[in-house]
Every structure is written in C-alpha cells, then in structure tokens.
C-alpha cells in the first residue's frame, strides 16, 4: 500500500522540474544487512542540502545510489529527473562531485588538471581551452597555470577543485567535506561561492562530518542506522531541541550509542 503510494509520488515527481533529488522508501541491502532503510525526502533545485550522519549510518551508500553507482534494492530515487535505477548514465552526466581530499591530481599542473577533467567530462578540445582560460581568470590563477597543484595553498586548491567539478555545467553538485581543515577565512570565502552557485539554480548536496560546515547548509538531514531521523533547517532544529549548535543536536540525536554500532 505504502509502496504503491511511493510509486505514484515518484512518477509524479518525474515531471516536477523543481526537484533535484527525490527519494521514496529508498532501500539498499547487502545480504542481510540493511545499509539504507527506506529513506524518503526531496531536495529542491537551488537548495544547499546537508546530508549528515555518523560513520556507518548509510550516507555513503545513499550517495552512491544518488550518483547512479549502486542500484537500490527497493524504493525509488530521481536525481535531476532521472531514475537512479534505469538512467544512471544520464545522472553521471548531470552531476558534479568534489571532495577536498581526492579531487585533484597533485602532480599535475593547474592547467593539466583542468584539461584532464575536461576530457573526463567529455568536453571538446576547443571547449577545454575556452574553459581553461575562463577558470584561470576567474580564480586569478593565470600566473600559476603551469604550477604543480601540490604547491598551491589549500584554499586555492579547494577553489580549483570546485571549479573543475563544475566544468561540465552539472545541475547538481555533491560536495564531500569540502572545507575540512581549512582556515576559517578560506572556508567563508568558499561558502560564499557555494551560495552563488546555489543562487544560480544549481543544487548543492553536502556530506560532512564537520558540524561547522553543516551550519552553512540551508536544510539538513541526519541519518542514523540507515534511516533519516531528522530533517530541517539549522535554525529550526536548534529551536526544536533548544540547543545552540548542530554539534549538540547531532550528539543529542545520535549520541550514546556508538558502542551498539561498533558491535554490529
């Protein structure tokens, strides 16, 4: 009964261009272990959505389904209007992914990284050259074009990684702990760009362990043992629980149970 409902809602969603991500009873099991246990939520176009959870909560599995890398066991999900089960290739072309740690090749130069990723994303050579010029200007990196990426300051690397993940003009961008360990000024500058990206209509989907990153999101979900146990705006959640920080809320909701998790 509930499943029928999920189907209907899902089919109807397909035509709603304002939804970037839509999950209905999305489930993934590995053998007898249920990693993602019937999660349902929507992310609207242009939202900055934080996807939080402790280790082993099922975040990574859910993200891999959203990116079309892992088919669901049950339930539905659409990303940019494409079905994760039947249209994973379309999804891969429509999404961008950035992780502070893994995105760039440290032993390639700035220009080579742009060229490399441009190639991966299927841009033509003239397109790559055009984009390279634009990016170098935009990031003020023209002088550093032939500098090895590893010698860039962390804040710049992060900006470059973000730009590279946007090369193919994705409509949704997944950010994995984008500003961990970065100094607060670089972090704030980075988030200012993220707000501009979201304002231009792209959807930003953030996974993070860092609760100070979570504070920047427009809306947040908290996953625990495969389920979404809370969802709302940072301000709304703080009011609801009478707590001052997302860290306190997270610990309040998920805390005191890590021993159970470890025993599994």
């Amino acid at each position: 009964m509930q499943n029928d409902f999920a189907h209907e809602v899902a089919n109807q969603r397909q035509t709603d261009p304002d939804l970037a991500v839509s999950a209905r009873e999305l489930t993934k099991r590995f053998g007898r272990f249920t990693a993602v246990d019937g999660i349902s939520f929507d992310v609207r176009r242009g939202e900055i959505f934080g996807f939080l959870g402790a280790n082993g909560a099922g975040k990574t599995t859910a993200i891999r389904m959203f990116c079309g890398l892992l088919p669901p066991t049950a339930g539905e999900a659409q990303v940019a209007g494409y079905d994760v089960r039947t249209q994973p290739r379309m999804i891969k072309q429509t999404i961008g992914y950035m992780s502070q740690k893994f995105s760039l090749y440290e032993d390639l130069t700035v220009a080579q990284n742009i060229e490399f990723y441009g190639g991966i994303y299927g841009l033509t050579r003239p397109q790559i050259e055009h984009k390279t010029g634009l990016l170098l200007d935009e990031l003020n990196l023209r002088d550093r074009r032939d500098t090895l990426t590893q010698s860039l300051p962390l804040g710049w690397k992060q900006r470059l990684a973000l730009s590279v993940s946007l090369l193919h003009d994705p409509s949704i961008i997944f950010l994995d702990e984008p500003t961990g360990g970065v100094d607060p000024i670089s972090r704030r500058n980075f988030w200012r760009i993220i707000y501009e990206i979201a304002d231009s209509g792209k959807t930003v989907f953030v996974t993070t362990h860092y609760m100070d990153e979570a504070e920047y999101c427009g809306r947040l979900s908290i996953m625990y043992q495969g389920r979404i146990i809370e969802i709302g705006t940072p301000g709304g959640l703080k009011e609801k629980y009478g707590l001052d920080t997302m860290q306190d809320i997270f610990v309040h909701l998920v805390g005191g149970d890590t021993r159970k998790e470890a025993k599994q």
Binding site: I48, R188, W191, R192, Y195, E196, A198, D199, E215, Y216, C217, G218, R219, T233, P234, G235
Partner: peptide, 26 residues
C-alpha cells in the same frame, strides 16, 4: 533572517558601519 542571501549580500556588505557579512543557511 534573510531569504535572499546572495542577492542582498553585497548590498548589506556595502551598508555603512558594516565590517563583514557571513551567510549561514537561513
């Protein structure tokens, strides 16, 4: 509390007496 974060960011930043502005979700 401000919904049009980006649109009004620069305008607020430029207002007199304002040293810096930072967006936080809502």
């Amino acid at each position: 509390d401000e919904r049009d974060l980006v649109m009004n960011f620069s305008r607020i930043e430029a207002a007199s007496g304002v040293r810096s502005v930072q967006s936080f979700g809502d």
